[in-house]
């Protein structure tokens, strides 16, 4: 047991032999922003903030503005043009027809996010992917509200850089819902790929779901999903070749442990409105705790693993209930 544990979390994980791979975002992230700031203190930041502000307000009318200011000068400390092979994984979901295979891959240290987003906005069909932002937190909510000023919008603490993906299942569930809706002709957005991003959302606001979960010009970590459909069948090797040519970033395996390292639990709870979950004292107050103290039902004390599992299923429930009106 101890031996296995050390396999899962080796201290050397962040220091692989390959020097390029040393630029994990945990290390790279703090370095990049200060350099961008120090180079052009005033102008550069204000442009970037304006772009982010537009993105928050949902100003999709000006895609050029969104991308024009992007990332100038930043990320110069990263290995920019790493032509590494995408770690593509093909999954066949249960109940979904065999013709609807999904190809998934995860990248970090993406340097051409604005280009990718532009392709999406332009409707370039060869870039028909679900592009899900998986970047780590960069601006804390308090910093964000300081910069943007007070705002009564509910998503004011919605920093553009919060990793909102809990686990593999979280993503697969979104894909399942999108494919199921697509098969039964109930897509709410443009195609099955945008529907995957929309499926991650707990509410019916499509623009907000793209803003929260979709790619932004500042995205550094990116989750890419391609659904192969009978009308446009796509093989893994085709996706692989296209991504290898177009994505500038460092491929990492799409695993729970990679996601868990960077997921921002408080943000996820906020988005899915799971904050009132008082595990152990739900409806009752102190009295109930006494009952639990007897150990009658064995709940109340959850390990970190169980807590994550619990968060995961609650997120799945919130996603499944999206659009429930009657």
């Amino acid at each position: 047991m101890p031996a296995r544990k050390s396999e899962e979390h080796p201290p050397s994980r962040f220091l692989p032999a390959d020097p390029f791979l040393r630029f994990t975002h945990k290390r790279a992230q703090p370095m990049t922003l200060p350099t961008a700031r120090s180079q052009e203190p005033g102008l550069e930041m204000s442009f970037k903030l304006q772009a982010r502000f537009d993105a928050r307000q949902g100003n999709r009318r000006q895609p050029v503005n969104l991308t024009a200011y992007s990332r100038a000068g930043s990320d110069n400390s990263l290995p920019a043009t790493m032509a590494a092979k995408a770690l593509l994984e093909t999954v066949h979901l249960e109940h979904v027809p065999a013709s609807h295979a999904i190809h998934i891959t995860l990248y970090r240290n993406i340097t051409n996010a604005s280009f990718l987003q532009q392709q999406l906005l332009a409707g370039n069909t060869s870039f028909e992917y679900a592009l899900i932002d998986a970047s780590v937190v960069c601006l804390s909510p308090s910093t964000s509200s300081k910069l943007f000023g007070p705002c009564d919008a509910p998503n004011i603490t919605d920093t553009p850089f919060a990793q909102k993906i809990v686990s593999r299942l979280h993503v697969l569930a979104a894909a399942f819902r999108a494919i199921n809706d697509s098969i039964s002709g109930r897509l709410r957005s443009r195609n099955v790929h945008s529907e995957i991003v929309f499926s991650l959302s707990p509410n019916n606001n499509i623009a907000e779901s793209f803003r929260r979960f979709g790619i932004t010009p500042d995205t550094t970590s990116l989750l890419i999903i391609k659904v192969s459909t009978p009308t446009s069948p796509t093989t893994a090797s085709e996706v692989q070749a296209h991504l290898d040519a177009e994505i500038q970033g460092e491929p990492i395996p799409f695993t729970d442990s990679e996601l868990a390292q960077i997921s921002d639990i408080p943000r996820i709870k906020k988005i899915y409105k799971l904050n009132n979950s008082g595990n152990g004292n739900g409806g009752g107050k102190k009295k109930e705790k006494v009952v639990n103290g007897d150990g009658v039902n064995g709940v109340g004390k959850l390990t970190a693993e169980e807590e994550k599992k619990e968060l995961e299923v609650q997120v799945l429930g919130a996603m499944a209930l999206r659009g429930a009106t009657n």
Binding site: G282, Q314, L316
Partner: peptide, 14 residues
């Protein structure tokens, strides 16, 4: 589930 009552979690629905 959100309030900590022991029930099965909802996975998906149509």
């Amino acid at each position: 589930r959100k309030e900590g009552v022991p029930v099965p979690a909802v996975y998906a629905l149509d």
